[in-house]
Structures are given as C-alpha cells and as structure tokens.
Design a protein around this nucleic acid. Structure first.
Lengths: 203, 203
DNA sequence: CTGTTTGTGGTTCGATCGCACCATAACATC
DNA sequence: GATGTTATGGTGCGATCGAACCACAAACAG
C-alpha cells in the first residue's frame, strides 16, 4: 500500500517544519500559517493531516519520539557484538547529549515543549516514561557490571544511575546554550564513568 | 522619594503576573491583555512601565534574576558563622532545586524562556553568566576543602564541580515534571556530596 | 459508468494580537 | 494658581491567529 507511505511521509514533512520553527522562537512561532509556509504546503493540509493545532503539536512530538528511539537503537547496535557494560552505559548517556545537529535540534524541541508537559495531560503522557526508563536501564547495567567485577561492590548502582542521567541532562542544557562544547561534555561524562567502572576501588 | 518605591512595586506586580502566566502555558500565553488581566491593571500600564512586549519579557526576567540572587544570599547567610565547605556547597546546589513554591515557579519561568535564550541576544545576555559562575564557585570551594583536608587530594575539583552543578540542574527538571520528589533529589545531591567531602578516601 | 473516499488549494470569519493614540486625574515646580 | 511631569484608564486600528468552509482532481468501488 504505497498510499500509507505517502501519508506518513507527508506527516513527517510537516512535523519537521514544526520542529524547525520550535527550535527558533519556541512554540509561539509554531502557527498554522508559519508551519504551512515552512513545510511548503497549504494551510489546509495541516488540518487534513493533523486536525487542530493542539493535535499538530502532539503529533509532531510523537513523531520526534519515534525518531529518537529508532536512532538510539541504531547507534547502540553500532557498538558491536559484546560491547561491555561500560560502553553501553556510555552510549545511553551520550544519547542525551546534543552531539550532532539532529540530536541538538531534538533536545531544543523538547525544551520548547517543556512547560506544556506540566499543564497538557496529552503531551505529558507522551514524554513521561522515557527518563525513568533510562535510569532503570543504567542502574541495571551498573548492577550487572558489579556481578562481572567491572564495578566496585560499594557503589550504589541506583543512586549513581540517577546521578549520571541527571548529570547528562544538566550538561545537555549548557551545550544547547553553547556555554560548553560537546567535547567537554563528553569528557565530563567519561570522567564520571571512569569513577564508576573501575575494578580496583582505590587505584 | 516614595514615588520610586511605587514605581518598582508596580513593575514587580506586573512581572509577577508575567511569571504566573509563563509557568502555565509558556511564553505564548504571556500576551499584553492576559498580563494586564492577571495583574489587575489596564493594558495601557504595561506599555507605560515596560514599553513593548519584548521589553516586558526582558524586564520580567531581570526582576526574576534579581530576586533569585537576593534570596540565595539570604539563605546562604542563614547557614551561620562558620558553615564549612560541605554546607556551603550543599547550600549552593540546593538553590538550583525547586524545593519550595518560589523556587519551583522561578525555574519554571526559566524553562519557559529557555529557547528564547538562543535566538534573542538581549535575553541571552541576562541569563548567560550565572551557571558558569556557580561552577567556578563550587570548584573553588572544593579546592579549599582539599587544602583543609576535608576533600581527598585525588579529587578533580573542577570536574566534580561541573558535574555536581549539572546533576543538580538535571534532577531539577525531573522534580519540576513531578517525576521525582524534592526529598529524593536532595538525597541524591547528599549522596554525591558525601563522596566528595570525605577526609579518608577509602573508608 | 457512477458514486465515494482521499488528497490538495483557496477563501473567509470571528477573535485576538501588539501597540499607537487620546483623555485625565494627581502631583510637583515655580 | 499656572504649568509641566507622572501615573492611569479607555479605545481603536491593522495584522494575524485558528479553524471552518467550499471547490476540485485523482483514485478507487460497485
């Protein structure tokens, strides 16, 4: 059914226009007319594919999330066959950093949506589970590293996982604001990872 | 000169209305009419005290920053005479967390402004230096803790400072989104502080 | 061949936007 | 007491907003 492909491609084309406008100027610049102009389609098409403006914002966010998940999977798969806990955790954390234009724009869009997550239940539901899931994943990986003697036993896996994810999100902001380079951010993450992933506790 | 006081009070009254509207719905809800209604004044007054809408947003942010700095000073002064490095760093980091309604709203307003910081030079200038200054302050305090043997020598003061601040900012987001309680966030900070501020490296 | 669904453009409407403009108290200065 | 400055309310205008509506082409169904 080639129709379905066209349908999704159109929605993606429009969603990308929403993202571009949101990264500049925030959600208030995401007006139906502006999106239509940016996507190179008529305003009527936005109504046809998404309906109201609220649904357009919601739909664009869903597509963005699907993208993020797929890209993350691809990059993690690129680590090879037996990556080791350290490399996997590193890959997960680096996914939170705006290391390329794609991730940078994605996190900017999230920032533009942020305040809405508190008041709009529909939006909140879309972006609710991700961070917790990440923390649990990292905590699990660290705990398995302890079983394999790659991580000291006196490390609190859950606490460190929360802190690592939070730290990554924190530097993310400063990189987005261009107050810090992406390389510095990665170095910072690696410094903390080196502390956790050490077979000998006091070297 | 009681006139001056009235003038600043009026500006503050209007700025608070801007904050309240920004915390719900983001900056797109901060329209002149809405602000006027929320502040209980006529729309004409906004023009008189701030000028254009752009200047209103800028002015409200400046007042918010002044507030934040003053409150932070007050709380740090409340620590007593000889607080010790650990307590000071803790106080600085906790200032980044939305532990009460005031700080919660403040950080929500920052979140609403976030995307604008990238494209609007005037706004960017207002909120540019704060995070770097915090990192340097924390790094300095940790380094002085090393001189006083309150912090192990093999701790990288600068690196830990950056990540502590970043971690605080990261959990801040999750607390704002009500995905984590304020108490959990404080516990996380304390867990990391306990790691840094230890006289004996391997206990 | 005819009717229905799907995709697209254009137009219009009522509401709201930012903001300029006008009127007028209250107060200060001389 | 005249005059100018400061502080306030009200009103109107052009632009833009979201969204409903209309027209039509293409594909598909029966």
């Amino acid at each position: 059914m080639p129709r379905q492909v066209d349908h999704d491609q159109r929605r993606r084309q429009i969603a990308e226009a929403v993202w571009r406008l949101a990264t500049r100027g925030g959600l208030e610049d995401v007006t139906l007319r502006q999106v239509a102009a940016e996507a190179g389609v008529s305003a009527r098409l936005l109504q046809y594919y998404f309906g109201t403006r609220e649904q357009l914002l919601l739909g664009a966010l869903e597509i963005l999330n699907d993208d993020a998940e797929q890209r993350a999977r691809e990059r993690l798969a690129m680590l090879g066959d037996a990556p080791g806990m350290h490399a996997i955790v590193r890959g997960v954390l680096l996914e939170l950093l705006p290391l390329d234009e794609e991730r940078r724009n994605r996190h900017l869009v999230y920032a533009a949506y942020f305040v809405r997550f508190l008041t709009d239940p529909a939006l909140a539901k879309v972006a609710h589970d991700a961070p917790r899931a990440l923390e649990n994943l990292v905590a699990d990986l660290i705990a398995r590293g302890q079983e394999l003697d790659q991580v000291p036993q006196d490390i609190n896996a859950a606490a460190e996982a929360v802190f690592l994810v939070a730290g990554a999100e924190g530097v993310q902001s400063s990189v987005l604001l261009r107050q810090r380079s992406a390389e510095d951010a990665v170095a910072m993450i690696d410094h903390q990872l080196a502390r956790v992933f050490t077979t000998t506790n006091c070297e």
